[in-house]
Design a binder for these strands. Structure first.
Length: 252
DNA sequence: TAACAGGAAGTAC
DNA sequence: GTACTTCCTGTT
């Protein structure tokens, strides 16, 4: 076990922020986390965290996964106090971080997410894992699995496209955000929004700002229909995530 | 009660 | 602009 005090970090907020679909609270304050085929249990007691893994695995796998090397207070302090929506969102969700998720899992998850709701996304991903022996399916697994009973609808074809034509992650390492997004969009089933989610959550390009129904709602309700400056900023994706998490909590 | 419309981290055509 | 899979919600 590796225990450590971490400010600006909240597992419940991250689990509920819609960026990952397999993180789950198994008992009060205890979360089970998956990243592709790695698995972890973490306990949160206020600012104190107990990672049920070796210090070596914490440093090598989970510290980068949770983006614990980044100073999020710095990003928070760049928020304009006059920006009511984003200031409230910061107050509400300041334990959120942008996870460094496995690239392949992120691609699969967000192709499934399109025109879909979060509980159902989670269920479908669970079914996929069950069909593949409890592990998140590899590319080969997807190509060799009958996906017709997963409830994927028209997204089924998109997953086969992904498994066949997605360039390997190394191809993206040398690309800028814009370039990576264009390459992703060449795949049938990946449009603007999903490409941005993959850039943000799978490639950690923090300037990617997914424009989903909630963002459109925010711009309409809270910014008089004109996208605020932060949408185009260096850390747009983090601010989008704060705003998304807050706006969703308000319901509707 | 059961049918129906509306909507969900959208994309292809 | 419309069709698209599935499933859940709220309305008649």
């Amino acid at each position: 076990m590796h225990s450590v005090v971490i400010p600006h970090f909240d597992l419940g907020q991250i689990a509920g922020s819609g960026q990952c679909f397999r993180m789950r609270e198994v008992e009060k304050g205890v979360y089970r986390v998956f990243n592709y085929r790695e698995e972890l249990v973490v306990r949160q007691e206020g600012n104190l965290f107990h990672f049920m893994c070796s210090t070596e695995d914490f440093e090598k796998i989970w510290k980068p996964y949770f983006d614990l090397g980044t100073d999020y207070d710095k990003l928070d302090n760049l928020i304009d106090d006059n920006d009511v929506l984003l200031s409230n969102a910061k107050e509400y969700g300041r334990g959120i971080r942008i996870l460094n998720q496995d690239f392949w899992e992120t691609c699969v998850s967000f192709v499934i997410s399109q025109n879909n709701n979060i509980p159902r996304i989670r269920i479908i991903i669970e079914r996929l894992c069950s069909a593949c022996g409890g592990l998140f399916p590899s590319r080969e697994d997807l190509l060799n699995t009958d996906l017709s009973d997963m409830g994927l609808g028209y997204r089924e074809e998109y997953l086969y496209e992904l498994a066949q034509y997605l360039p390997c992650e190394e191809e993206f390492d040398k690309l800028s955000y814009r370039e990576a997004k264009e390459v992703l969009k060449r795949i049938k089933g990946i449009g603007d929004k999903v490409a941005d989610c993959i850039c943000l959550f799978g490639l950690h390009k923090l300037e990617a700002c997914p424009m989903d129904v909630w963002m459109k709602r925010i711009i309409c309700d809270d910014y008089n229909g004109i996208a605020p400056e932060w949408v185009y900023s260096e850390y747009a994706g983090y601010y989008q995530q704060l705003a998304f998490y807050y706006k969703r909590s308000l319901g509707r």
